[in-house]
Amino acid sequence: MITTVAHFCLLVIALSLIPALYRIVRGPSIADRVVAADALTTGIMAIVVVSSIVLHTRDYFDAVMAMAILGFFGTVAVAKYILQGRPID
């Protein structure tokens, strides 16, 4: 039963990546694109976790951890870049 549910969840999460791609392409400002990229990263992390449930292995959690760290630092870097050198207090 868990395998069927996990396959259905994989389909739904993969479909929910499409609005993030749409917002990255069309979003009117840089901040919209960063928020959409954050949502895309979180969706890919969820896909990897559900895939590890299907494959019944825990070897991919290092990749999930790396994606979480890289997504956060990317967001912080772009937030500092948008401020154009003004310090964040």
Binding site: A31, V35, G71, T75, V76, A79, I82, L83
Partner: peptide
């Protein structure tokens, strides 16, 4: 991260 991006926006 969301707070920082909204604040700089």
């Amino acid at each position: 991260g969301a707070h920082m991006i909204a604040r700089s926006a």
